[in-house]
Amino acid sequence: FDRLRFIAEEAELGEHREAILAVTIPERPGSFRKFCAQIGARSVTEFNYRIADSSEAHIFVGVEVHGSEETARIVRNLRRHGLTTLDLSDNELAKWHVRHMVGGRAPRAAGETLSARDELLYRFEFPERPGALMRFLSSMRSDWNISLFHYRNHGADYGRVLVGMQVPSREMKQFRQFLENLGYPYAEETRNPAYRLFLV
């Protein structure tokens, strides 16, 4: 099955059915949702991000397209909206290595990691259909910051998504309500030793 996934990914990139983009957005709550609105109804095939800077967020995103002309239109539209965008669709380093290495630990700030400030880590199963990500983003409070996001489409009926969110402890009741109202299967991973060792 891994071999079939490799062949499918090669075909998508070779036939220009997937655009691989590096986009810089403001590091503030709501920026991710605004970015997704610019992508529109297109299927997002991959999204990798980890908080690293207090002013800018660098995201690695894959988008299903119908040729290189559509990729160029997406890039122009993002740039027109003030987002620095780099097309990495033909970049071998990005396709085979960087996409798996985006992220890492949160940076240290004021003597502690940013992730130690109210970060919660959750695994979700998103339905593989247009609008599932936007539903997630629109359902969460606009002042909760997404500090980590990892997703890759593997052709299943649902997508495995890892999300880090900075939620003040006094707002846990609202956060639990958000999880229940969302209706997506989830599991908390905040105390997972792999997270504590490699991502905090």
Rank of each mutant, 00 (worst) to 15 (best):
D2Q: 12
D2H: 14
R3E: 11
R3S: 12
R3Y: 10
L4Q: 13
R5P: 01
R5N: 11
R5E: 11
F6S: 09
I7A: 15
I7H: 14
A8C: 06
E9Y: 11
E10Y: 07
E10F: 12
E12H: 11
E12S: 10
E12P: 00
E15G: 10
E18Q: 15
E18H: 06
A19I: 01
I20S: 06
L21A: 02
P26E: 03
E27H: 12
R28E: 12
R28P: 00
G30L: 04
G30T: 02
K34V: 01
K34M: 05
K34N: 12
K34R: 14
K34F: 02
F35R: 00
A37D: 10
I39Q: 00
S43C: 06
V44N: 03
T45I: 08
E46G: 13
A52Q: 13
S55D: 11
A57E: 00
I59Q: 00
G62Q: 00
H66S: 14
E69C: 07
E70Y: 05
E70F: 04
A72R: 15
I74E: 03
I74S: 01
R76K: 14
R80C: 03
R80P: 01
H81G: 04
L83N: 06
L83D: 02
L83H: 14
T84G: 05
T85E: 08
L86T: 09
L86M: 11
L86N: 10
D87F: 12
L88C: 10
L88M: 15
S89I: 06
D90K: 15
D90W: 12
D90F: 11
E92S: 14
A94L: 09
A94H: 09
K95H: 13
V98C: 09
M101A: 11
G103S: 08
R105F: 11
A109S: 12
A110T: 01
A110F: 13
E112T: 06
S115M: 05
A116N: 08
D118H: 15
D118P: 00
F124A: 05
F126L: 14
E128Y: 07
R129N: 03
P130K: 09
A132D: 02
A132C: 07
M134R: 12
M134Y: 06
M134V: 05
R135L: 03
F136N: 00
S138N: 15
R141P: 03
S142I: 06
D143P: 06
W144I: 02
N145K: 15
L148A: 13
L148G: 02
F149P: 00
F149A: 04
H150V: 03
H154F: 13
A156G: 07
A156Q: 13
G159D: 07
R160M: 05
V161W: 01
V163H: 01
G164A: 10
M165S: 07
Q166K: 12
M172W: 08
M172Y: 08
Q174N: 13
Q174I: 02
Q177M: 09
N181Q: 13
N181T: 08
L182R: 05
Y184N: 04
Y184H: 07
P185G: 08
A187G: 12
E188M: 12
E189R: 05
T190M: 14
T190R: 14
N192D: 15
P193C: 05
Y195F: 15
R196S: 06
L197I: 02
F198T: 03
V200M: 14
